Amino acid sequence: MIADDRRREILRRLQIDNYVEAAALSRELGVDASTIRRDLDALARSGQAERTHGGARIAAAPSDIPYAVKESERRQEKVAIARAAATDVSDGQTVILDSGSTTYQIALELRHKQGLTIITNDLRIGKYTATLPNVRLLVTGGELLGSVYTLVGERAVDFLSDYSADWAFLGADAIDPTAGITNTNTLEIPIKRAMIRAAAASIVVADSSKFGSRALAKVAAIEEVGQIITDRAQPIEGLADYGPTVLFA
Rank of each mutant, 00 (worst) to 15 (best):
D88R: 15
L132P: 07
S164V: 11
L97F: 07
L29S: 07
L40P: 00
R75G: 05
I236W: 07
Y128S: 04
G54N: 04
G47F: 03
S208Q: 03
A233T: 11
S63P: 08
T94E: 14
Y104G: 13
D64W: 01
R27H: 13
I236C: 10
D166M: 03
K127N: 12
T52A: 04
R38C: 01
Y163Q: 04
E224H: 05
G238F: 03
D88W: 11
A168K: 02
L239E: 04
I81D: 09
D122L: 01
E223R: 09
G100N: 13
V135Y: 11
F169A: 06
T87M: 12
A33D: 14
S26F: 06
D32Q: 11
T35V: 15
T35D: 02
R37F: 02
A206T: 10
A215V: 00
G55S: 08
D166N: 15
G171I: 01
P177K: 06
R45Y: 02
T120A: 01
H112A: 10
R13Q: 06
S63H: 11
T140W: 01
I58F: 05
A60N: 15
H112K: 05
A233G: 14
R38E: 01
E77F: 04
I181R: 00
G243T: 10
R27Q: 14
A240G: 12
A86N: 11
V139W: 06
I106Q: 06
G153T: 00
R214E: 08
A206Q: 08
N18L: 12
M1L: 08
S46D: 05
G47P: 04
L137T: 06
E237Q: 13
T131V: 07
S213N: 10
V246A: 10
R124W: 01
A249D: 11
R136C: 10
L187I: 08
K78V: 07
P133F: 11
E224Y: 01
Q48R: 14
F248C: 06
R13H: 06
R111W: 09
I106M: 08
V89E: 15
Q76C: 11
G153Q: 00
F211T: 05
M1Q: 04
Y67W: 15
K78C: 09
S46M: 14
M195G: 14
R27W: 09
E50L: 03
R6Q: 08
E143T: 09
D122P: 00
I16E: 12
Y67C: 07
P190V: 02
L160T: 01
A130P: 05
R214M: 04
L145S: 07
L132H: 07
